[in-house]
């Protein structure tokens, strides 16, 4: 089991390295990032200077090496050694130390990419976890109920609703909830993010309700359908008949024996969807104007802030890889047949 976990983590690290390399090459192939830093009124001399100061004149292999070094041990900005040492004497405030794992430095925001991400991450994380819990809990519960009442009114209505929700774009759901539930009907206060530090758990909880719901609905619809299908399938299994033949209560047969088998495939899907959700909160954040990673990405894109974009892509990729590892390990934990391999 432990050997399995270690092997899985090592593979994950290799995948991560490969991903960083690809991302790095792709973005730097796009052109000289110094041009964007230099700004609108860029003279050739200034461009040359900026290029040199930030190390963009060095070969890409060199730059990648520096970037990896930053990831592992941290690094200092500006990149050019001579310039930085001179700057350290004349104006030490302008020398920035970026500790490991350093994802880069955004001239535009005058922050390291890590600082940028840490600043915007809480909203996205809160939103993702919140909607994850909503969607898993209600998605699975409703899915099981639909399976149990298969073919009856409850099942048909549920399946109908999920079809509709599934077809609606997230921005439509978000706009609808915002315009009607919050603004027109005033069922909830106008949503704006409140951190736990500011508003306590309840404040945080209620401030996130609408956006989390928006984000969750699509997945919830999908999970109702998936759970329903998995449970229906598992209910035809022989071991369900055995469970009934033992004289167990219907509830036990359903939730202990039926759902248990359906949960395993659900788990692996949920892990991956959660990682995708982290990356996909962009639309919801922009509908509700929440300061999350999605907004950071949109802004960075608008400003051609390459270091931030690279950092975000790497973080998103790392999240997916991490989720994969967790899912694999959990899977081995829940399925005894996998565990022993």
């Amino acid at each position: 089991m432990i050997a399995f976990a270690i092997r899985r983590i090592l593979v994950g690290i290799v995948m991560l390295l490969a991903m960083v390399l690809v991302v790095f090459i792709l973005f730097f192939a796009a052109g000289n990032p110094a041009r964007d830093v230099c700004g609108k009124f860029c003279t050739p001399e200034k461009l040359k200077q900026v290029t040199q100061v930030y190390g963009y004149d060095q070969p890409i292999s060199e730059q990648f090496g520096l970037f990896m070094k930053g990831l592992v041990v941290g690094r200092d900005y500006p990149v050019d050694d001579k310039y930085r040492e001179a700057l350290a004497k004349s104006n030490p405030d302008l020398v920035i130390h970026c500790p490991a794992p350093c994802l880069g430095y955004s001239q535009h925001d005058a922050l390291t990419v890590n600082q940028d991400i840490v600043k915007y991450a809480p909203v996205t994380l809160s939103l993702s976890i919140y909607s994850f819990v909503l969607w898993i809990f209600f998605g699975v519960l409703i899915g099981v109920l639909a399976a149990v009442f298969k073919g009856r009114a409850l099942d048909r209505i549920t399946v109908g609703i999920t079809l509709v929700v599934y077809a609606l774009p997230t921005f439509f759901i978000g706009t609808f909830l915002l315009q009607f539930v919050a603004i027109k009907w005033r069922l909830v206060p106008y949503p704006s993010y409140v951190s736990i530090a500011d508003g306590g758990v309840i404040g945080w909880f209620s401030s996130l309700f609408l956006p989390a719901l928006t984000l969750a609905l699509f997945y919830m619809a999908a999970y109702v359908r998936i759970t329903r299908a998995f449970v229906l399938e598992s209910l035809t299994e022989d071991y369900i008949r055995t469970a009934r033949a033992k004289g167990l209560r219907t509830r036990v047969v359903l939730f202990k024996h039926g759902l248990r088998a359906a949960l395993t495939p659900l788990l692996s899907m949920a892990g991956l969807d959660f990682a995708a959700l982290l990356a996909g909160a962009v639309i919801t954040e922009s509908v509700f104007n929440y300061q999350g990673l999605g907004l950071l990405a949109v802004t960075a894109n608008k400003n051609s802030d390459l270091p931030v974009l690279i950092g975000l892509v790497i973080v998103a990729g790392a999240a997916v890889i991490l989720a994969n590892i967790i899912v694999d390990i959990l899977y081995a934990y829940v399925d005894p047949r996998v565990r022993l391999r």
Binding site: D238, Y239, R241, T242, K246, R260, A261, D335, P336
Partner: peptide, 21 residues
């Protein structure tokens, strides 16, 4: 209440009749 107590059944194909998990 009678199932598994008064009347019990041994099923065909024990591998699929037992819960794998």
């Amino acid at each position: 209440l009678k199932r598994g107590k008064e009347v019990a059944m041994i099923f065909q194909d024990p591998l699929s009749a037992l819960h794998p998990y």
